[in-house]
Design a protein around this nucleic acid. Structure first.
Ligand SMILES: [Zn+2]
Ligand SMILES: [Zn+2]
Ligand SMILES: [Zn+2]
Ligand SMILES: [Zn+2]
Lengths: 143, 143
DNA sequence: AGTGAAACTGAAAACTGTTTTCAGGATAGC
DNA sequence: GCTATCCTGAAAACAGTTTTCAGTTTCACT
């Protein structure tokens, strides 16, 4: 799976006429070993543990490329900084976010998706994408 | 209704031991005549048309007070700037947002809300609040 | 291998929206 | 009126993001 994603990234770079660099490869590699919804700064830290020379800007630009290629999703959880996650499956999902410990769980519910479409239709809207986030306390954090 | 809201704001100010000022009153007044989801900057512009001396900072601080008092809700629609709306009814609602013209429609769907609770329960989550936004094209903007 | 055009990198600067600071001004209880 | 406290607005500080730019690397073509 990681192999595959690295390959897809290489193909994207190739198709766009961009160049293959070790920095990008290292960044993308670390990114795909992470499961979670990571911020640019967090990823930069992780990457620097392997190669301290890699700068924030390159991490930023590589995440933009990953997003553009469809291999990552950019998320805005309202805390003022973007988070990125690998697109592993084709499945859309939404999020449960713990207000205390920051844990982020994913879920998918077809009924909700269907009802969203119904609502949009009632208002003459054509939905392109949506955001559903449930904020609260996770199993560990609620008392 | 506007009278009422102004009154509630005055009561809040009083209870907190704060002082009544013309700037705040003017800002709050303009805010409650607007229907829509307004940014600080937009509100500042509108307010300045009535009183050019009022600064951005005071608008910012007054919106914080309104939010604190429960008379306004702060929304983060992911475009990087906060938006505020008057809390007119007690009814919770979610949003349909046009990607082209920026129109924001509101809706409320009990079934979706119920399903959200179910999902949270399945994951041991206690939901405090949630965000559901459908992005797409409105009746006018879809072709 | 050598060359050159095009792309890449990383530090620093610029930007954007938000928040804090601070000196002067307004408010309200006495 | 006096005075403590709060308020105001310009400017500075902040935080996350994005752009700039000078030097470096990649790669197609010899
Ligand atoms: Zn938690
Ligand atoms: Zn996710
Ligand atoms: Zn529209
Ligand atoms: Zn609304």
């Amino acid at each position: 799976m990681k192999k595959n994603q690295m390959g897809e990234f290489a193909r994207f770079i190739e198709e766009k006429g961009l160049k293959s660099t070790t920095q990008r490869d290292e960044i993308v590699n670390v990114f795909f070993t992470l499961k979670d919804h990571v911020s640019i700064e967090e990823l930069h830290h992780k990457v620097q543990k392997k190669n301290p020379k890699i700068g924030y800007t390159t991490v930023y630009r590589t995440l933009k490329l990953l997003t553009e290629s469809g291999l990552a999703h950019e998320r805005q959880f309202g805390d003022g900084q973007a988070r990125y996650e690998p697109v592993t499956t084709e499945e859309h999902h939404d999020h449960l976010i713990c207000l205390r410990c920051g844990t982020i769980l994913e879920f998918e519910n077809k009924k909700i998706e269907k009802l969203q479409e119904d609502v949009a239709k009632q208002h003459g809207f054509e939905v392109k994408n949506h955001k559903l986030e449930l904020y609260g306390y996770c199993k560990k954090c609620r008392k």
